[in-house]
Simulated assay, not measured.
Amino acid sequence: MGKQKKKQKKRGNPLWTLVFLAALAVFCFSGYKLIGIYLDYKTGTDEYRDLQQYTTEITKTPETPAPKKTEEPQAESEPAELPNRSRNHCRIRQNRRLPLILNP
């Protein structure tokens, strides 16, 4: 037996080669689509930049402050006696509002 055997190149599993080629194709196609999106975005921003020469900027003039009203502090009047503790609790709850949650 010779010590210097020719090493044979071992080919990989054809299934893994196919998976690799499919992944490479997806990667290339995604890059192509991203470049297309970027170029569309760039043409839009260039168009807006060109249209900016036709617009004018409106600046607000500073408004004169209105005279402040002097309010006298009003003394808070507390009820002499709370008739029922549960009624007071309900009155506090009626004044609370929960945030409005809308489903998308």
Score class of each variant (00 low, 15 high):
Pro73Gly: 04
Thr64Trp: 00
Leu98His: 12
Glu57Val: 15
Thr55Pro: 00
Glu71Ala: 04
Leu100Ile: 12
Phe20Asp: 10
Glu76Met: 09
Leu100Lys: 13
Gln74Trp: 04
Ile37Trp: 12
Asp40Pro: 00
Thr61Glu: 10
Val19His: 05
Ala66Ser: 04
Cys28Gly: 07
Asp40Gly: 02
Thr61Lys: 13
Gly2Phe: 12
Gln74Glu: 07
Leu100Glu: 11
Arg85Lys: 10
Cys28Lys: 07
Ile35Phe: 10
Tyr48Ser: 03
Leu98Trp: 11
Tyr41Ala: 08
Ile37Gln: 11
Lys68Tyr: 02
Val26Cys: 12
Gly2Ala: 15
Ile101Ala: 06
Cys28Arg: 07
His89Arg: 14
Asn95His: 11
Asn103Phe: 02
Lys5Ser: 11
Glu71Phe: 14
Leu24Arg: 02
Pro99Ser: 02
Arg87Met: 14
Glu57Lys: 15
Gly36Glu: 14
Gly12Ser: 13
Lys10Val: 12
Gln52Cys: 00
Leu39Asn: 12
Val19Trp: 09
Ser30Phe: 03
Pro104Asn: 12
Lys6Asn: 10
Asn13Arg: 03
Lys60Cys: 00
Met1Asn: 07
Pro14Asp: 04
Val26Tyr: 08
Arg93Gly: 06
Leu15Glu: 14
Ala23Glu: 09
Pro14Met: 03
Glu81Pro: 00
Ala66Arg: 01
Glu81Lys: 15
Asp40His: 05
Ile92Ala: 11
Arg87Tyr: 11
Asp40Ile: 03
Lys42Trp: 04
Arg93His: 06
Val26His: 03
Lys42Arg: 13
Asn84Pro: 00
Leu34Val: 13
Asp40Lys: 07
Cys90Met: 09
Gly12His: 08
Trp16Val: 08
Thr59His: 14
Gln74Thr: 13
Arg96Phe: 10
Arg91Phe: 08
Asp50Gln: 11
Tyr48His: 05
Ser86Asn: 14
Glu57Tyr: 12
Gly2Thr: 14
Asp50Ile: 00
